[in-house]
């Protein structure tokens, strides 16, 4: 059932021409970032080469690129999650799912994984571009891998927040603005908190991405992402159940 719902979500996404357009534009933007970082690296490379232990191409090109994309996704994911449930309500298609023999958790997980697969496709362009560097130089596979894993977990946590906000409303636009407000709010609280041990750092997904970004696989950070996503998915399941109670 989860797979069926996820496939339906993907099919609907790819049936819309706007999805293809957004995919193309985003690949263009990603490529632009990549080439800009690469150019900057090539300019400073002669000076770097004089250092005793010069930073490689992966840490100077890939890591900042992943960091930028993590920020970009914060703005982008709400645009995709807004449709998930709010639009079903607005188009009155939600009755089909509510009257079908499936539980609320199947419904939420199906939608979550459907969108996550799409977002994973959206960001696969990034490692592909970075791997073209392997044609000319040696790259740090470990650092790339930890960044990719971190980015995927980060995307999942964004998608879970967006899905929950989408379950709260009938208007996709409100869902997008709401999810954006939550994600940007968490980020601003994180960068605004001066104290090293401020609780705001702990609840911000982007803060937990920093270790992955530096190539450090911390199980604590991974656990945070899993918990963060699970909490919002559970809230969404609760909301779907309440939908039946309050109408």
């Amino acid at each position: 059932m989860i797979r069926l719902l996820a496939l339906r979500e993907l099919r609907s996404l790819f049936a819309m021409s706007s999805t293809w357009f957004i995919l193309a534009v985003l690949q263009f933007i990603f490529a632009w970032f990549f080439l800009a970082r690469l150019e900057a690296f090539l300019e400073v490379q002669p000076q770097l080469a004089q250092l005793a232990n010069p930073p490689g191409v992966t840490i100077t090109v890939a890591a900042p690129m992943f960091n930028t994309i993590a920020l970009l996704l914060m703005m982008l994911v709400p645009m995709f999650t807004m449709r998930l449930i709010a639009e079903e309500r607005r188009n009155q298609t939600f009755a089909l799912l509510l009257s079908a023999p499936l539980s609320g958790s199947h419904l939420v997980l199906g939608k979550f994984f459907g969108l996550l697969i799409f977002l994973a496709v959206l960001i696969t362009g990034v490692p592909l571009m970075l791997y073209t560097l392997a044609l000319g130089t040696a790259i740090d596979h470990g650092l790339l891998l930890s960044n990719m894993l971190g980015l995927l977990l980060l995307t999942a946590s964004y998608a879970a927040v967006g899905l929950y906000i989408s379950a709260l409303t009938t208007q996709p636009v409100i869902a997008a603005i709401g999810a954006l407000a939550v994600l940007v709010g968490l980020w601003l609280a994180d960068i605004g908190a001066a104290a090293e041990n401020s609780p705001w750092h702990f609840v911000s997904p982007l803060y937990h991405f920093q270790n992955f970004n530096a190539g450090l696989l911390d199980s604590g950070d991974a656990a945070f992402f899993v918990l963060f996503s699970a909490v919002f998915l559970l809230l969404a399941i609760r909301r779907i159940h309440n939908n039946r109670i309050y109408g």
């Binding site: 339906r8 609907s12 188009n91 009155q92 009755a95 089909l96 009257s99 023999p101």
Partner: peptide, 22 residues
Amino acid sequence: QPVLAKAHIGYLPETPPLYREL
């Protein structure tokens, strides 16, 4: 037992629940 029972129901709401892009 909503999941078991709903397998026996077919429902057309007031507005047909159609995914217009499919």
